[in-house]
């Protein structure tokens, strides 16, 4: 497939800073990535790595006083950073939609879910109530909600977690957005329901032509869903690339260590898990050099003065690590986890 000259979403050097103690603390530092048409891109990282802040900044949902969003995020060539609230509001919900981890708090408890989905449709399109409700019911049905007409008349608390998440996805898709930002959409769900929701997200590319930016902490979810993956660590990009490459030949020691610390469900059971010692630094105490340096097994003098720049490793793969350039790249991963049952 020839590369599209203009990606759907093109984020360059996005920085988000919050004021604290008279200075500014950078929560997100120079994050760059793109999402192509009908592509699922994963944004992974541990808590506090800045993945949700990145998404909120893209959606223009950070309005705390003093917060600075810098850099550029172009959606179909339109600059989102600094866009007028009115213009952004027209875009949000119609072209870019978001689903959240906890559908219980994302819906208001005092209206039926049908009412809430109708409202979103009518905010963006001139439709009668009846037509909006018809669309709502159809959407719920597409999301695999049983008895959609009756479910639309129910309140959020009357639905199970899985159904609420489906209703939330239905709401997000109600105006056929080209980009769906999903922030930990399955974290609160059980695995059997999670599998259903992931199947749904994978299908959106074909059924709605939507791209998905999937934010998650679960490498398993990424492996099964995303074509490309971006790994964040302490607000900075550690690595990005095609998911298969990242899993087979991670170039950043953090990616490798993160993958190794997941207990395997199949294959030999390690006596001890290769855990990463210590904790990620808070944005306030992020070291001058590589943020992962203090926990890295390969740390040496060149890592310390400044954060390593993102360097191209291979086709589509980039890593913010000095090892490949120094001629000592990480070895490919032993694929113990690949053993099929």
């Amino acid at each position: 497939m020839p590369a599209d000259p203009m990606p759907l979403l093109d984020v360059r050097n996005l920085c988000v800073s919050v004021p604290a103690n008279g200075g500014m603390i950078r929560l997100v530092e120079n994050v760059s990535f793109c999402v192509d048409e009908a592509e699922i891109v994963g944004l992974v990282g541990e808590s506090g790595s800045g993945k949700s802040v990145t998404a909120m900044a893209l959606m223009g949902l950070i309005d705390s006083p003093g917060v600075q969003v810098r850099g550029s995020a172009r959606f179909r060539g339109q600059e989102l950073v600094g866009m007028a609230p009115r213009a952004l509001r027209a875009l949000r919900g119609r072209d870019i939609a978001m689903i959240f981890q906890d559908p219980m708090t994302a819906f208001t408890p005092v209206y039926t879910i049908g009412w809430q989905i109708d409202e979103q449709i009518r905010a963006h399109e001139r439709l009668s109530r009846r037509a909006a409700r018809a669309r709502t019911v159809q959407l719920l049905a597409e999301m695999g909600v049983p008895d959609p007409a009756r479910t639309a008349q129910r309140y959020p608390h009357q639905l199970s977690g899985g159904l609420r998440q489906r209703a939330m996805i239905a709401m997000a898709l109600s105006c056929n957005p080209t980009l769906l930002i999903a922030d930990e959409p399955t974290t609160a769900l059980d695995v059997t329901v999670q599998a259903q929701i992931l199947e749904l997200l994978r299908g959106l590319r074909h059924s709605h032509g939507s791209s998905v930016l999937l934010i998650t902490h679960d490498m398993g979810v990424v492996a099964q869903t995303c074509a490309r993956t971006l790994v964040l660590y302490s607000g900075r990009m550690a690595e990005s690339g095609p998911t298969a490459t990242l899993f087979a030949r991670p170039a950043h020691p953090y990616t490798a260590a993160l993958l190794d610390s997941i207990p395997p469900l199949y294959g030999p059971r390690p006596h001890r898990l290769p855990a990463i010692a210590g904790l990620p630094p808070t944005p306030r105490e992020r070291p001058a050099g590589c943020a992962f340096g203090p926990r890295c097994a390969h740390v040496h003098a060149t890592c310390l003065p400044a954060p390593p720049a993102l360097a191209s490793i291979g086709p589509g793969q980039q890593a913010a690590c000095v090892l490949p350039a120094e001629g000592t790249p990480l070895p490919p991963r032993a694929t113990a986890q690949a053993t099929q049952p």
Binding site: F247, T335, Q337
Partner: peptide
């Protein structure tokens, strides 16, 4: 069987999860 199959494994190209319908 459904529970183990539904676990998203950190392996690219692993067999897709067997789908269990509905909720508990």
């Amino acid at each position: 069987a459904a529970l183990t199959a539904a676990v998203p494994r950190p392996v690219v190209g692993a067999a897709p999860a067997m789908l269990l319908r509905g909720d508990v």
